[in-house]
Amino acid sequence: MSIRIDQLPRDKFIMPGTAACPGCPLLIGLRQVMMALNGKMSLVIPAGCSSVIPGMSPATSYGVPTIHVPFASSPAVASGLVSAVRMRGNNGPVVVWAGDGASSDIGFAALSGAAARNEDLIYILADNEAYMNTGIQASGTTPWMAWTTTSPNGKTEERKEMALIMLMHKIPYVATASIAYPLDFIAKVRKASQIRGFKFIHLYAPCPPGLKFDDSYTVKIAQLAVETGIWVLWEYNQGKLTISPPSAMYKDKSKRKPLSEYMKLQGRFSKVGEDAMKIYEAKIDAYWNTILKLSELYK
């Protein structure tokens, strides 16, 4: 089911003149979700950048029915909302668009609960790897050694692997995606929309001010994350786990670009020296190893 760019809808799903920072990855990703579903969806959005980006009432830049809700509540609100609309005969997709803080920290219980109940939702974790809206504080998915305002010498703990955690909820669909690979992401969202039950997509969305890189590099950084192997695109679909095409060649470690190419463009990794870089590469290998083993298990 390959998608061509010229087949995508060209409707204005996002009204320009938003409150997003220049180069914001969240809008790139959100536009892709709306393209994937042709705008026929409703959005549930917890506190975070995406509750500020739509700008100010009585206007909004989001062109689809949207409810903004408290930080920890979005999977639960969406559970109720989808129950109501299904009872009323509406089978359209209800999408939770949540950040890493809302998903991996404050709303973790609600996410786990909704997944365990296998609610008919598409949950997209748009991960910019820190609490960007409040000014770059470390979250559960902030990677090891990354500078944030609450990890000024680099985060000392590991990141939570949210997609793997969600996989163990035995839901029908779990995938990772990247804003740099829209056709892969759009295909995943469309596939998810055809499946009943809880669908979880972990979308990498690097933030220029938060990760400290140039506004114009948003897509480049996301692409480098895949090319260096630090972000692996994979998909679990009802029993089968596969490495997604953009990541497939990086199973072979020698094909991966040096991690430093990804790191040196980001101010947040300025404390990562040569030794730490080696440890980092070993962590990437270990993660790849896990995913490849899982792909053998879930054949």
Partner: peptide, 24 residues
Amino acid sequence: AKFIRVESEFAALASVYGASAGGA
């Protein structure tokens, strides 16, 4: 009716709130 077996009271209210927003 749909009974949503939630994981907390916070989610209980959040889910019925969502249901009300969805017209139920």
